[in-house]
Write a protein that binds this DNA or RNA. Sequence first.
DNA 1: GAGTTCCTTTAACAATTGTTAAATTGTCAT
DNA 2: ATGACAATTTAACAATTGTTAAAGGAACTC
Lengths: 187, 187
Amino acid sequence: MDELFKYFDEFYSLNGESREAIEGICSEIQVSKNELLQPFGHTCKTIYYIKSGIARIFYYKDGVDITEYFAFENNIVARVESLFTGKPSKKAIQILEESQIVAIQVPGLFRLYDRFPQIERLFRLIFEAGYVETVNRMESLQFHSAEERYLDLLKKPDIIQRIPLKHIASYLGITQVSLSRIRSTLK
Amino acid sequence: MDELFKYFDEFYSLNGESREAIEGICSEIQVSKNELLQPFGHTCKTIYYIKSGIARIFYYKDGVDITEYFAFENNIVARVESLFTGKPSKKAIQILEESQIVAIQVPGLFRLYDRFPQIERLFRLIFEAGYVETVNRMESLQFHSAEERYLDLLKKPDIIQRIPLKHIASYLGITQVSLSRIRSTLK
DNA sequence: GAGTTCCTTTAACAATTGTTAAATTGTCAT
DNA sequence: ATGACAATTTAACAATTGTTAAAGGAACTC
């Protein structure tokens, strides 16, 4: 659990009492490759902290598997469009590499917001950072070419080195074939 | 100011003390068409509530004017990628229709977060809703065709009826010419 | 209301990306 | 190692979107 609180410290440092409260709604799990951490069609009731490994959020559009997000070690992953609306999500979370994960119960967390303003602030700051990341990604999808987006991605070695190209393609908003073509012209 | 608190009530109802505190960091302004509410290159130090009128967030990519977001009456607008990072924004906010606006000072707001957990909660909820909206928009840009995105937009009559097509085009991530072509095939 | 400017459409052509299918390469279990 | 399966590349063609330029319409100023 130490890693989790170190991660929290990057945003906001909790006092001892708040930490204990958080520990009460957390559990550690190990998940193996290709397993679904969260299935389709269910409301997001758990936030995950990836201690080690990789997860992705994905869904199907017209039968095609589309990756919306990758989460590597030392990061939080959650389907926010369900978490913040309470509605069922059409997205699932899948593990891409055997992972050590801390599961944080959402109903418990929301109750802690009332008792510990520190915890509410911490998660506010965490999700604000996620919001900024999403705005930047939206911007790149709005008016950058597929090649520009791929070149940007090369700056994130984790994704390039550890993720199959088929998932990278859909993450970039293009087909595998198109990505393969772009890669070949860059050689 | 009544409208503002009515808007807040949709997310979280503040008590009297919190309302007074908010009023202390707000001022009402009238802004005329085409004026810049916020210039390029400055850090976001103000959040705006649109009482009446329309605003848009935009920026230039390779010299081309791109609209990232429209805000109509009874909505909040802010450049979150600057607001939440403290970094200067390369985006500006422009008024598209003469507007009545409530300007909320950001440094003051952040100070109120410490004194009034209610206020921190309110804005947490407001920006969580914005986050969800952005995730949904990203999804539509990632794997929907331009025509699908335009058809989706037709469901938002405010945008179609009150915004010039050139701004709608860049908002959809396409050129004016392409949008015009899509419109003509739909007739 | 004449003239100017801006917005939108249309057309022709270029570039990019999608689609389908086949070939190649890589991975994994036995 | 062998076979089976998954991932990636390549190729040919189709569809979509971008680019440039010109023309028509709408809105605004004086």
